[in-house]
Design a protein around this nucleic acid. Structure first.
Lengths: 217, 217
DNA sequence: TAATCAGATTAACTGAATCTTAACTCATAG
DNA sequence: CTATGAGTTAAGATTCAGTTAATCTGATTA
């Protein structure tokens, strides 16, 4: 699981980063709104922890910008208690949760976990392409209405690619999201799984751009 | 099914705990609002029974806190009759049900069952498949109209799977919902119960996808 | 209070599915 | 033509579901 921590206060940012890394998350951090958006557009995160008071681009702006194109990603707002009422009131539910400073790290961690849980429990969803149907509740995949049996890793890879349909996903991203945090990032194991996955799917379902990553149309 | 009982009055808490355990529920209990939130964040409950008058963090606060992030979980409020009007009036539909003290345990149990039903089914006290009928009020199971006798754990597992008919349920999920929080998540006890449960059911009733979980069609 | 009993848990083991590794080949860009 | 990344293969390692038997626990009753 990959988090983006956006916080300008150096010591707090560092504490959060270290805390989450220790818990096995992959963490990127940004110190202002501009950097946050840059990182957001160049990688794929599961949860964004976003301070409201930021230099350059305000946190609310960052939130709006991200929400404009992505309604799935979980965003947790951090804010000084005094700013909460007027600011949060105007958020219009763009954030999934918010937490007033100061807070206990444990509290933040619990909320992040809760958000991830909710994310995974989006159980009724089906992801489809022209020929594929992926039923996330049962983790089953159908090609032209006939079930194809996938292993856990194969399914995980396919689901991840389809959840980011049309976007480039690097091998590193795959390992980061489909494997647990102990996995080596330089293993070629995912290639083996992509290989066996491709054999079960129509040709050219999973495409590759040399040096950049994989994608599904 | 797993309940969280939040009640500061020692004897009542203990009575509720024992009562629900006897009925085959997995039960955790908290004596104040802080403990309640801690437990809430560290486990997954199907219903929370929440007293309003609590030390440290007030029941209403606990309710708000939980509702902020989780709209699915069922919450039943307990309250002395005199407190009801002003407090409950302000709840604004945060709770799913409430019950005035004093009450009969039977009444509480019926309401909890109703909440669970609302959660998973639409107003039906029976869960059925083509050959099985499960009467949740009596906790009895019939196969082709003939009763099959299950132990509490066997029943709990089957009920949970049937309430999530067509969805994947991991072993961890099972332990989380059928056992109380003291259970080790890495025990293989549930496999033994599934094994004995399967012997009492038609073949292939409970299916497994390796590395992912169990399901009933 | 001790003996008994059902149910729950633990631990050890098996066989099979799945995953990883590593060496190799192939394709492409510079 | 060469270097690098992508794709392939097969062997070996690991993990996981399922099974069994022994042990533990707590309720019931003799």
């Amino acid at each position: 699981m990959k988090l983006l921590v956006v916080e300008d206060e150096v010591s707090l940012q560092s504490a959060l980063r270290k805390g989450f890394i220790k818990l096995g998350y992959a963490v990127d951090a940004a110190s202002d709104g501009e950097e946050a958006l840059e990182l957001y557009y160049s990688s794929v995160y599961d949860v964004i922890i976003l301070d409201i008071n930021l230099p350059k681009i305000d946190g609310i702006e960052v939130l709006k910008e991200i929400r404009k194109e992505n309604s799935e990603i979980k965003i947790l707002i951090l804010s000084a208690r005094s700013e909460l009422e007027d600011k949060i009131a105007g958020l219009d539910r763009g954030a999934n949760d918010y937490l007033a400073k100061p807070f206990h790290f444990k509290e933040l961690e619990a909320r992040v976990r809760a958000l991830l849980r909710r994310n995974f429990l989006t159980q009724n969803a089906e992801i489809t392409t022209d020929r594929l149907v992926l039923k996330t509740a049962l983790k089953k995949v159908y090609l032209d209405d006939i079930e194809i049996v996938l292993t856990k890793k194969e399914y995980g890879i396919l689901e991840y690619l389809l959840m980011h349909k049309g976007k480039l996903v690097s091998g590193e991203d795959l390992i980061e999201h489909v494997w647990d945090s102990e996995a080596e990032t330089f293993t070629n194991s995912f290639k083996v799984h992509i290989n066996s996955l491709r054999k079960k799917l129509p040709q050219d379902t999973i495409r590759n751009i040399r040096g950049q990553g994989y994608y599904v149309e």
